[in-house]
Amino acid sequence: MHIFILIFLSLILPTTSVYAGDMQGSRDHPEIPRVAGSEIIGFEYNEYDAANFLKADASTKITLVNPEGKRTRILYLAKAGDKPLMVQKNYATALRQLGNANEIYSCKNTGCNRHLLATTFWTRDTMVPTEGLTHPFYLLGFSHTFTSPAYRYIDVTTDSARYHVGVSAVVIAANNSNKKFRERTVMLVEILEVSNFEATLEFVDASEMQQQIGESGHVALYGIQFDHDKATLRPESNETITEIVKALKSDSALQLYVVGHTDDVGSLTYNQDLSLKRANSVVKSLVAAGIEDSRLTALGVGPAAPVSSNDTETGRAKNRRVELVKQRTVD
């Protein structure tokens, strides 16, 4: 696999060493290598934050998704001669080597909405702290300050972690007010490590669902994931949905309450409404897979039935879940 990287620009593995020219206090992400010859001119790390990634919905409209977790943003200046598409090839290859990589969205050149890229990733409120820039906002803050954009958003699952990675690579315009960076390629790399990945790893197959429902009357599912503050099911939920369908088809008498749960961040009314909408999304997905809607009842209880403390993010992650609860059969 390493041979393929060398075909392009090659990447260098992150180390604890500080590279010449790197912003003071910055560092590579421990799992995502930099393109060889590049240097860090902007950096920000947050132990817990919501990230920004672009994707296309079913109607091809570009939307923003905001998963939460450990967030790293790095602004790299590529070496002279490197181009955005070449850079993107390297990152795509590196992410495939890291784990199971699923490309969610990508665009290049005229296929990218340059105004959207600028307003999503580099406003006065969203730009990362930088070093060596005379006018940081003008580097990427307007669509006319850069050319040849290429963007890629990839979800990567490894044996021990799940990462959302967005790479925005552009050429700084020849008339940019940051003179020393004119006509050079910069890469804004955003990495979000899902903080509750340990919970999502608790995959429950159909037989385990049946066993837990038979023993305790319910089963908690962490493999069902939603977009941040929305009821939209993420693609990684499909495997668990498939197992629910198997369990229901193997026991035609089984009827379930599909119960949505949230943490207690936000108002009670908001969380109750969100939990019900999420439960309904699961029900709709199961019905679309061939399960009779008469066997399913959606309920939303918001934060009313926690399984852990809401005082920590680890606890809140455990409280955000969907449960299947067996309905009593009336004789």
Rank of each mutant, 00 (worst) to 15 (best):
residue 144 H to F: 13
residue 145 T to M: 07
residue 148 S to E: 12
residue 149 P to T: 03
residue 151 Y to Q: 06
residue 151 Y to M: 05
residue 154 I to H: 01
residue 155 D to Y: 01
residue 156 V to N: 03
residue 157 T to I: 09
residue 160 S to Q: 10
residue 161 A to L: 02
residue 161 A to H: 07
residue 162 R to G: 02
residue 164 H to C: 04
residue 166 G to Q: 02
residue 166 G to L: 02
residue 167 V to K: 01
residue 168 S to G: 00
residue 169 A to Q: 03
residue 171 V to W: 01
residue 173 A to T: 03
residue 173 A to R: 01
residue 174 A to F: 00
residue 174 A to N: 12
residue 177 S to Q: 09
residue 178 N to H: 04
residue 178 N to R: 05
residue 179 K to P: 02
residue 179 K to S: 15
residue 181 F to Y: 15
residue 181 F to T: 08
residue 182 R to V: 02
residue 183 E to H: 04
residue 183 E to W: 00
residue 186 V to S: 03
residue 187 M to F: 07
residue 187 M to P: 00
residue 188 L to D: 00
residue 189 V to L: 09
residue 191 I to N: 02
residue 191 I to S: 02
residue 191 I to H: 00
residue 192 L to W: 01
residue 193 E to D: 06
residue 193 E to W: 00
residue 196 N to Q: 06
residue 197 F to K: 04
residue 197 F to C: 05
residue 197 F to R: 04
residue 198 E to D: 11
residue 198 E to K: 10
residue 198 E to C: 03
residue 199 A to V: 06
residue 199 A to L: 11
residue 203 F to C: 13
residue 204 V to W: 01
residue 204 V to A: 05
residue 205 D to G: 06
residue 206 A to G: 10
residue 208 E to Q: 14
residue 209 M to D: 11
residue 210 Q to H: 09
residue 214 G to I: 03
residue 215 E to C: 02
residue 218 H to N: 14
residue 218 H to G: 08
residue 219 V to Q: 09
residue 221 L to P: 11
residue 221 L to I: 12
residue 221 L to M: 13
residue 221 L to T: 13
residue 223 G to A: 11
residue 224 I to E: 12
residue 226 F to H: 06
residue 228 H to Y: 12
residue 229 D to I: 05
residue 229 D to F: 04
residue 229 D to Y: 03
residue 229 D to N: 12
residue 232 T to V: 07
residue 232 T to I: 08
residue 234 R to F: 02
residue 236 E to R: 11
residue 236 E to L: 04
residue 236 E to C: 09
residue 238 N to F: 01
residue 238 N to D: 15
residue 239 E to A: 15
residue 242 T to N: 14
residue 242 T to L: 07
residue 246 K to N: 11
residue 252 S to P: 06
residue 255 Q to A: 10
residue 256 L to M: 13
residue 257 Y to W: 05
residue 259 V to D: 13
residue 263 D to N: 15
residue 263 D to P: 12
residue 264 D to S: 09
residue 267 S to W: 04
residue 268 L to F: 00
residue 268 L to P: 05
residue 269 T to R: 14
residue 270 Y to A: 10
residue 272 Q to D: 11
residue 274 L to V: 11
residue 275 S to N: 10
residue 275 S to V: 08
